Amino acid sequence: MDNFNNLQSHTNFFSILLVLIAICLFYYVVKNYKTINSQLKLILIIIIIAIPFKIYDTIGNDNQIQSLVKNFDVTNGKVIKHIRGKGKAISYIEFKYYVNNIKIVKQYDDTYYSSFPVEKPNFNSDYLVIYEKGNPNNSLILLNYELKDKNDLEKYKIEFQKKIPENAFNH
């Protein structure tokens, strides 16, 4: 229970909502098992089975962000690929950065923690990357922190030493 209390509020809400949906679906399937057609029955059972996996994935993402925020450093990185979904479609980004002269390529989709701007990022510019010190693969590129000149990285390192700014992850 302590682990559940340590999660972000949106993760708790989302997990509780999914559990309630699973309970309602399970109740519906059990109550109407003989009257609903087999295709709908199969779809509902698949959804009920998939819900715990989605909750596990959401909690895992939350734990990664918590670890990142507790022990982080910043560096510069470049966007390699950016695909912007239309409307509410998921967006995707791939970027590269170096930590201790080791090249790391990371990709992820639009999440609660790091939303992407509407316009495409400048592929020729560097952006601030925040990564976990003990696990450099746990990282996010911050597209709202473009490094326009050499001094920007040092300026942001000083700014992030005090505290991660509120607008760092979301635009």
Rank of each mutant, 00 (worst) to 15 (best):
C24S: 13
F4S: 10
I16V: 09
L25C: 11
V105N: 09
K150V: 04
D149R: 10
V118L: 12
T35R: 12
I51F: 04
L147V: 05
T11V: 14
N61H: 09
N76Q: 12
L153H: 04
V29F: 05
L18M: 09
Y127P: 09
N63T: 07
F169L: 08
K81C: 02
V30Y: 10
P121T: 08
I46M: 12
Q107I: 01
M1C: 06
Y27T: 04
K148A: 08
Y56S: 10
Q161W: 00
V79I: 14
G77A: 00
K86P: 00
K103F: 02
D2V: 10
L44R: 07
Y97K: 05
I93C: 09
Q107W: 06
E154A: 13
I93H: 06
N37G: 10
G60Y: 09
V19L: 13
Y131I: 01
S38V: 07
V105Y: 01
L7M: 13
L18T: 02
F169R: 02
V19E: 01
N100T: 11
I104P: 00
N100F: 10
N144H: 06
N3C: 00
T111H: 08
K162N: 09
K54N: 12
Q64Y: 12
I80C: 00
I83L: 13
E159C: 00
K86M: 12
F26T: 15
I65H: 03
N151I: 05
Y92N: 03
Q107N: 15
Y33K: 08
K78D: 03
Y97N: 06
N170Q: 09
G77V: 06
Q107R: 15
V19G: 06
G134I: 01
I164Q: 02
I164R: 05
Y56A: 13
I55G: 07
I48H: 05
A168D: 02
S67Q: 06
T75M: 02
K163L: 08
A89E: 14
I102H: 11
Y113C: 01
L143D: 02
V118G: 11
P165G: 10
N61E: 15
V79H: 04
N137Y: 14
L25Q: 08
Y113L: 01
N138D: 13
I47L: 15
D57W: 14
E119D: 14
K157A: 03
F123T: 07
N124M: 09
D126Y: 11
I83W: 07
I55W: 05
L128D: 03
N76D: 08
V74W: 03
I59V: 15
N135K: 13
A89W: 04
L7Q: 10
K106P: 04
S139Q: 03
Y98G: 00
H171S: 11
I16C: 05
S114F: 14
D57M: 11
N63L: 03
Q39M: 10
H82M: 15
K81A: 02
I48M: 12
Q39G: 03
I23D: 03
N61F: 09
K162S: 11
K78Y: 05
L42G: 13
T111C: 11
N100S: 12
K31H: 04
Y33E: 06
E159V: 12
H82Y: 15
P52H: 04
N138P: 09
T58F: 00
I51P: 07
S139M: 04
K34Q: 14
